[in-house]
């Protein structure tokens, strides 16, 4: 299975990555070979094996609905490249009306 150039551009867009033409070509090859590798699983006969929807044990683990102290605002904002009025500051929406 190989990916088209357009598919690579689309995947890059979903990941908000800007790729050069060289990179598009390289990732097209690399991603395609990863998919081909994974495709090898299809060679196995799995007709007698029930689908695995999760490898985790089928039991719940819960937390009681009791609050604990939160993280101080200034500690959180240490991770913000920019902040204003105790909030993360990000660029304005780029996609305007069509």
């Amino acid at each position: 299975m190989s990916l088209s150039r357009e598919e690579v551009i689309h995947i890059a867009k979903l990941a908000r990555l800007e790729l050069s033409d060289n990179e598009i070509e390289r990732y097209q090859q690399q991603l395609s070979s990863i998919l081909e590798y994974a495709d090898r699983l299809k060679e196995l006969n799995t007709s007698q094996i029930p689908p695995t929807s999760s490898v985790l044990p089928a039991r719940s683990r819960f937390r009681d609905d009791v609050p604990v102290e939160s993280l101080p605002t200034d500690k959180l904002l240490k991770n913000a490249p920019q902040s204003e009025k105790d909030q993360f500051k990000v660029p304005p929406a780029l996609e305007g009306p069509q």
Binding site: S60, F62, R63, D64, D65, T73, D86
Partner: peptide, 26 residues
């Protein structure tokens, strides 16, 4: 409440933080 006061590593998506489901939600 003022902005960013009810927050923790889980709800702000800090690396390594793990979610635990609130029983009352279910």
């Amino acid at each position: 409440d003022p902005p960013n006061t009810n927050i923790c590593p889980v709800c702000t998506g800090l690396p390594g933080a793990l979610p635990t489901l609130n029983k009352a939600v279910v």
